[in-house]
């Protein structure tokens, strides 16, 4: 752990930009879902994105690994611009991990096979090496004993932790989280959040779409509030929660923090 901490602080100090979004627009048919998104993420930065449903927050982070196509503007990830070029897309996807709301583990493969698949087939890693690395990450998310089981035999929280480990096995520079705790029972949310906090502390660049405001307060370097396909406000968490600038943000915060 201490090793990764060191490297992360170095990269943070250099402050280089990992993700750049410039004037990004996206439409679903006639529906204008992303409007002029401008965002820069530096290496090692932890960003939480919140906002009401349908505000375009998931769509935005899904544009970063091209699960969604943007129609206007520029997205540059680690120096690679996302265009129709399949090579560029593959390059970006190798470096960007993603965790989904519904885990999306592969049910026909064991936990270990889920984790090894992409390193073996995309990174061309020898199987033994990939398995050893996978076990390391499974230990990190605290479920090495489940490696031989199938996803269907695990609880939701365990599945989500496997999903995190699966992404980490590709050794990504950036991790995207698309509402990782929204499909979980309250008892399981904590174990997943703890894993995410640990990951954040190790210096991973993270973009999380989440409604867990506690997580945002403890981990985030920056909180972004979106509504109607626009970034309404972005600030560091203390300011964001205590001194929101826009009335829309105030209303949103009052609604989610009241109960």
């Amino acid at each position: 752990m201490s090793e990764t901490d060191n490297t992360s602080s170095q990269s943070q100090a250099s402050g280089d930009v990992t993700i750049q979004m410039r004037g990004v627009h996206k439409w679903y048919g006639q529906f204008h879902v992303l409007k002029d998104i401008n965002l820069e993420v530096t290496r090692g930065e932890r960003i939480v994105i919140c906002g009401p449903s349908g505000s375009g927050k998931s769509t935005m982070i899904r544009c970063i690994n091209r699960l969604e196509e943007h129609q206007k503007g520029q997205i540059i990830v680690d120096g690679t611009e996302l265009t129709d070029d399949v090579k560029h897309i593959d390059q970006v996807r190798k470096e960007v991990g993603m965790v989904f709301q519904h885990f999306n583990l592969f049910p026909h493969l064991t936990v270990l096979e889920n984790c090894c698949l992409a390193p073996i087939w995309v990174r061309k890693m020898p199987r033994k090496e990939a398995e050893a690395a996978a076990m390391l990450y499974l230990e990190k998310v605290k479920i090495p004993e489940q490696a031989k089981k199938y996803p269907g035999q695990l609880s939701g929280g365990q599945q989500q932790r496997v999903a995190i480990a699966r992404s980490l096995c590709m050794n990504p520079n950036v991790m995207l989280f698309d509402e990782p705790t929204s499909a979980l029972d309250p008892e399981m949310i904590k174990e997943v959040l703890d894993t995410m906090i640990e990951l954040a502390e190790s210096g991973m660049t993270m973009l999380c779409v989440t409604h867990e405001m506690g997580f945002a307060k403890t981990v985030a370097d920056r909180v972004i509030f979106m509504d109607g396909g626009e970034i309404i406000e972005e600030n560091e968490p203390h300011e964001f929660f205590n001194n929101p600038q826009s009335d829309r943000t105030q209303l949103f915060l009052s609604q989610i923090l009241q109960h």
Binding site: R93, F100, L117, M170
Partner: peptide, 30 residues
């Protein structure tokens, strides 16, 4: 096969034929 399976395969960087051969077809054929 749920859309999430296609997306997870894509997000891991698997090409079309690899994601079909390793993820989608084994489940779909079963």
């Amino acid at each position: 096969i749920p859309k999430g399976q296609y997306e997870a395969a894509e997000a891991l960087g698997l090409s079309f034929w690899k994601s079909m051969g390793l993820i989608i077809l084994p489940q779909a054929l079963k």
